[in-house]
Each structure stands twice: as C-alpha cells, then as structure tokens.
C-alpha cells in the first residue's frame, strides 16, 4: 500500500487543511477532533523551490532541494524535490519517503519527482 500524507477536513463545514490544526480556519468549530483525514493528491505543479547548501548537521548531504507544490485539488505542501532542473510551474509527482533520519527516528514526508 502506498504511503499517504493526509489533509484534515472539517466535519462541520468541509474545509480542508494541511497541516493539521485544532480549530477550523473557516468555521471556527471548537468541538475537539472534528476532522476527517483525506489523503492529499500526489500530483501538482511546482510553485517555488530552492536548493539549500547550508543544512542542519543531521543531514549528511552537501545540498538539498526543497519546494512548495500546488496539488491537483489546489492545496499546497512543502516537500523535498528530486528534480534535475526545476522550473516554476512544472508538473511534479510525489511519493512518501523517509526525508530525515536521526539515530532513533525516521521522518516520512513528501518527495517530488518529475511527473
């Protein structure tokens, strides 16, 4: 089964959020845990990007590309970018992979490849 990253849909008004928030930004519903999880789409277009050359010490790479992607449903996500020559507006496709590893922990997140 493919791994997913989830958006949070308000049970009261239907508004989608990513990442998780405790209170819906649209309707302000204060009842706790009033969200359904909805898998985020994997395809989208690259909104902006950078290549970082000065990473925190736990990254054992010299540089790393990051981007913000506008997904098919209009939501946005920040992720890592494995695209040879990124351009604003290009189509990309995401996979959920390990994005950061420490001694005792693995963090999964979205990694984008050319579509």
């Amino acid at each position: 089964m493919a791994l997913e990253i989830y958006a949070y849909q308000c049970k009261k008004c239907g508004q989608l959020h990513y990442p998780f928030r405790m209170v819906c930004k649209k309707c302000g519903n204060l009842e706790p845990f009033e969200f359904n999880t909805v898998a985020l789409p994997k395809n989208g277009k690259l909104l902006t990007f950078t290549t970082v050359h000065n990473l925190p010490p736990d990254f054992n790479v010299a540089k790393l590309s990051l981007g913000i992607v506008e997904l098919e449903n209009g939501m946005r996500i920040t992720g890592q970018l494995k695209v040879p020559s990124p351009k604003i507006g290009m189509a990309v496709s995401g996979k959920v992979e390990i994005v950061r590893e420490a001694e005792y922990s693995k963090n999964f997140g979205m990694v984008f490849y050319p579509a």
Binding site: V52, L55, P56, Q80, R100
Partner: peptide, 8 residues
Amino acid sequence: AEYIYGVT
C-alpha cells in the same frame, strides 16, 4: 510540515 524536510 516544514522542519522535517530540512527547511531552514
């Protein structure tokens, strides 16, 4: 949603 990716 940001830090884990290496966002600085």
